[in-house]
Simulated scan of single mutants.
Amino acid sequence: MPELISYDNGAIWYELRGDGEPLVVLPGGPGMDARYLADLGGLANHRRLVLVDQRAAGRSAAPEDRSTVSFTAQARDVEAVRERLGLERIDVLAHSAGCLIAQEYAAAHPERVRRSVLVAPVGRAGREPDAAELAALRAERADREWYGDAAEADRLITSGGYTGSELRALQRRITPFFWHHWDESRWAEHRPEHATPYPWLRDAFYASSATPDTLVDRLARLSAVRSPVLVVAGASDGMIGTAPARAVAACYEGARLHVLERSGHRPWVEEPARFVELVAGFLVEDAD
């Protein structure tokens, strides 16, 4: 398995899957093992996926300096990946929380990004769900047999006070909200070993989220990006909703937004053919 040493001697692992031009892939979570992305619904048949494990996630090491796990800091690891690949410019695909890293990288290194694909992004400067939209999306499932248990788990998480294994158990119980169609086979998509073992990682990752005082400046940096951007979301995403994706798409001039009607938070699983068609088609436009 390839490994690179980043700017601060941190060990970053990445996996190569498929054939074709490289596509740097950043997982979500934060802190999910990149292997949960598999071949992205068959996208590996069109591009060579460079699946990068974030710091303190998957096969990458946990740094001594936890500030380097923030999404803004991890953009420097993407630059290290680009240098390892020996490419002047790269195409980047990110999922969920990983989109914050991808957006920061494009803003910091605009000359290095050819095209960006942001799948179910959590927001522009941190998590930006719309509470009313999420409540409505979850209420639409009120007639499902699993709804009562998932709703109770959601209430307990919101009430706070749960950590460690108790919190992880509650988070597992709300998993059905994240899908357009839920059945028992979906449990295979949620493997506990894919989650980070470090309870501090989430706070460290979001430590660089914009505050009200810095939001204007961050949005200005993002909106200055001129490389093409594709945003893909799932209409039934009961994890973050579609509001963050719409806000992200509106941030970039000429960005395209596609909301897949029969998908939740992982559209490459629920609508693989449509997902691959959209992404592969976008990436080959004006290829040089």
Score class of each variant (00 low, 15 high):
residue 40 L to W: 13
residue 184 E to T: 04
residue 97 A to F: 05
residue 209 S to I: 08
residue 261 E to L: 05
residue 74 Q to S: 03
residue 63 P to V: 00
residue 81 V to I: 15
residue 8 D to A: 15
residue 273 A to Y: 05
residue 82 R to C: 04
residue 214 T to L: 10
residue 24 V to L: 14
residue 135 A to G: 06
residue 248 V to W: 00
residue 91 D to T: 04
residue 162 Y to V: 13
residue 203 D to I: 01
residue 185 S to H: 12
residue 105 Y to T: 00
residue 282 F to Y: 10
residue 72 T to L: 11
residue 134 L to T: 09
residue 271 E to A: 11
residue 195 A to T: 08
residue 147 Y to N: 05
residue 267 P to G: 08
residue 4 L to I: 15
residue 115 R to Q: 14
residue 266 R to F: 06
residue 68 T to D: 12
residue 5 I to V: 15
residue 261 E to M: 06
residue 140 E to C: 06
residue 150 A to H: 03
residue 20 G to R: 14
residue 46 H to S: 11
residue 184 E to M: 01
residue 280 A to S: 15
residue 161 G to A: 08
residue 185 S to K: 09
residue 52 V to C: 04
residue 107 A to H: 01
residue 6 S to D: 15
residue 168 R to P: 01
residue 153 A to Q: 09
residue 1 M to L: 10
residue 187 W to M: 10
residue 25 V to C: 15
residue 31 G to S: 09
residue 10 G to K: 14
residue 212 P to D: 09
residue 111 E to P: 00
residue 64 E to V: 07
residue 46 H to N: 11
residue 2 P to L: 13
residue 50 V to L: 05
residue 143 D to F: 04
residue 98 G to H: 10
residue 149 D to N: 06
residue 99 C to Y: 03
residue 11 A to V: 15
residue 268 W to E: 14
residue 285 E to R: 14
residue 192 P to N: 05
residue 218 R to F: 01
residue 180 H to T: 01
residue 98 G to W: 06
residue 53 D to Q: 10
residue 208 S to G: 14
residue 200 W to I: 01
residue 90 I to L: 05
residue 153 A to W: 09
residue 23 L to Y: 14
residue 191 R to V: 12
residue 185 S to N: 11
residue 64 E to A: 13
residue 270 E to T: 09
residue 75 A to D: 04
residue 261 E to F: 00
residue 151 A to D: 14
residue 123 G to V: 07
residue 187 W to G: 10
residue 238 G to D: 02
residue 120 A to S: 15
residue 81 V to K: 00
residue 39 D to P: 08
residue 245 A to Q: 07
residue 192 P to A: 12
residue 181 H to D: 13
residue 242 T to C: 11
residue 93 L to D: 01
residue 238 G to T: 06
residue 232 V to C: 09
residue 241 G to Q: 04
residue 12 I to F: 15
residue 70 S to N: 12
residue 197 P to M: 07
residue 102 A to R: 05
residue 76 R to Q: 10
residue 100 L to Q: 06
residue 164 G to V: 06
residue 266 R to L: 14
residue 41 G to Y: 02
residue 201 L to V: 08
residue 30 P to M: 03
residue 115 R to V: 13
residue 271 E to R: 02
residue 263 S to E: 08
residue 213 D to Q: 12
residue 49 L to V: 01
residue 149 D to I: 12
residue 190 H to I: 12
residue 42 G to E: 12
residue 135 A to P: 11
residue 78 V to L: 14
residue 229 V to T: 13
residue 280 A to E: 13
residue 265 H to K: 02
residue 182 W to I: 08
residue 88 E to Y: 04
residue 174 I to E: 08
residue 69 V to I: 13
residue 36 Y to S: 12
residue 73 A to M: 03
residue 135 A to N: 07
residue 234 G to H: 03
residue 161 G to W: 06
residue 137 L to N: 10
residue 159 S to A: 15
residue 121 P to G: 05
residue 141 R to V: 02
residue 217 D to T: 11
residue 4 L to H: 09
residue 244 P to W: 09
residue 57 A to G: 09
residue 239 M to S: 14
residue 209 S to W: 08
residue 251 C to K: 00
residue 71 F to G: 12
residue 171 Q to G: 05
residue 55 R to A: 04
